[in-house]
Design a protein around this nucleic acid. Structure first.
Length: 472
DNA sequence: ATGTGC
């Protein structure tokens, strides 16, 4: 799989049959040193074969191998031209995403409250593979209310304020959720997990704004140097996972009837305008609402701890997903088209002036949050006008070593000691989980963000550093 | 990511 360098930050995989469009990779040679051995370039090419795909099969600078589609992949299909939707283009953790909250605290305030704050969060934030969650749902009817109402339902039930919804992608609720397309098994898995972090790379971090790159935009986001912030990264837990599994199977069975062939069965897909396509999008929207309610409930739990231990509020900056397919309008060859934009490990980044932004963010653009690996920096970015890849950018540092490899390379206890020695408080769920998230398993997030900016995908706004991590 | 395989 040859990558042709078009510019220092843009590479092309030339179209050859059965690709319908070329591949485009936003990266630098330094970020993809083992490209000849990596499996993701073939995945970028495979995605380019999907019916209805327009432009190119894109990869963000944090691209790595995933299920069918690469993580860090963006692909848009033309709905009216038989364009498909593919669950593998969203990923198992549907609407996994990040929200950032600004505290009424400066980092110099933190030492006096840190232990009480971190112990409070340790007790209040359910996480790991167990069953604990902030909310216990009474029955399927209440889960359906979550699946239809997302963050809005959580706020209506007293777990937030109206401003939280204004600062969420889609105002906290995706329309057209169809709980009828969510299987009983998915419901069972989701019933007792609303308001829980999960495991893997999910976390709640207390951070400080370490450096501001753009004062005006940071101010519009409500951020200033030295400020304490909270970042929450989690998704739709077992419910989203089960929905992905169920609908991949249904699409595999339906593909012959639609005359669709794909080079990898993990690219199972169906036309957006087909029973299977509509069924998946309805279930996906339900999982997206579940994930937003999940982040909203964890926000409410964190607010109670911040109020009690630090006398501080937490004000939502924004909440944005990095695993989702959305029907959006984009210009293609000079005409506006309705596209199904898959972002898997890629973040929507609307430019300044976009009508879907709340009025107080419109001049600044959409906030994007890029968590680094544990113990390293995270970034706040904003969208830019005229960006390629359907207004999308990176979502994280990008894993370079498998969980198994990482878990063998370091002991969790040792990692915690190192982080605490650097002044980062750690409240983990399991020692192995901690070891698997060692920063050595990830790329340098600063290099990823530098390339994303240089490639014209986004602009840097602020750099955040961790003070305390509550790890899933 | 995930009742860490179906």
């Amino acid at each position: 799989m040859e990558l042709v360098e078009e510019s220092p930050y843009r590479f092309r995989i030339d179209r050859c049959d059965p690709m319908r469009v070329p591949g485009v990779v936003f990266a630098s040679r330094a970020l993809i040193p083992h490209v000849d051995e990596d499996r993701w370039p073939q995945q970028v090419a495979n995605v380019a074969t999907l019916p209805g795909i327009v432009g190119a099969s894109y990869a963000m600078p944090d691209v790595h191998w995933g299920y069918g589609f690469p993580i860090g992949g963006v692909a848009a299909t033309d709905v009216a031209a038989g364009g498909v939707v593919s669950p593998g283009g969203v990923g198992f953790d549907i609407s996994c995403g990040v929200r950032l909250l600004a505290a009424d605290l400066d980092r110099t305030d933190l030492p006096r409250v840190r232990d009480a704050l971190m112990d409070g969060l340790d007790a209040a934030i359910p996480r790991g593979m167990g069953r604990g969650a902030v909310w216990q749902l009474a029955d399927r009817a209440e889960l359906d209310a979550v699946l239809r109402g997302g963050s809005r339902y959580a706020v209506e039930r007293g777990h937030g304020v109206p401003r939280d919804l204004a600062r969420c992608e889609d105002a906290g609720v995706v329309d057209d959720a169809d709980p009828g397309q969510v299987s009983d098994r998915a419901v069972q898995r989701g019933q007792q997990q609303v308001g829980s972090l999960g495991s893997g790379n999910h976390f709640l971090e207390v951070q400080a704004v370490d450096e501001v790159h753009d004062e005006a935009v940071a101010a519009a986001f409500g951020l200033r140097a030295g400020q304490v912030v909270v970042m929450i990264h989690c998704g739709s837990r077992g419910l989203g996972h089960q929905i992905c599994t169920d609908h991949v199977r249904a699409m595999e069975r339906a593909m012959p009837g639609h005359g669709i062939e794909v080079p990898d069965r993990q690219l199972a897909c169906a036309p957006v305008r087909s029973p299977q396509g509509r069924a998946y999008l309805g279930a996906m929207a339900a999982a997206a609402n579940y994930a937003r309610a999940n982040r909203q409930l964890l926000t409410a739990a964190a607010r109670r701890v911040f109020a009690r231990t630090a006398g501080s509020g937490l004000h939502l900056v924004y909440d944005v997903s990095h695993n989702l397919a959305k029907i959006e309008t984009h210009g293609v060859d000079g005409a506006d088209r309705r596209l199904c934009v898959h972002r898997k490990g890629a973040t929507r980044a609307l430019p300044p002036g976009h009508p879907q932004l709340p009025a107080d963010l419109r001049a600044a653009g959409q906030p994007v949050f890029v968590p680094g690996s544990m113990g390293t920096a995270s970034y706040v970015l904003t969208g830019v006008a005229g960006a390629p890849a359907f207004a999308s950018t990176c979502h994280g540092a990008g894993r370079v070593r498998s969980r198994a490899q990482a878990g063998k390379s370091v002991r969790g206890q040792e990692l915690r000691r190192e982080l605490q020695a650097r002044g980062i408080a750690v409240r983990g769920a399991s020692w192995r989980g901690l070891a698997e998230e060692t920063p050595q398993a990830y790329k340098d997030v600063s290099a990823v963000v530098d390339v994303a900016e240089a490639a014209g995908l986004c602009r840097r706004v602020a750099r955040l550093v961790p003070l305390g991590v509550v790890k899933g």
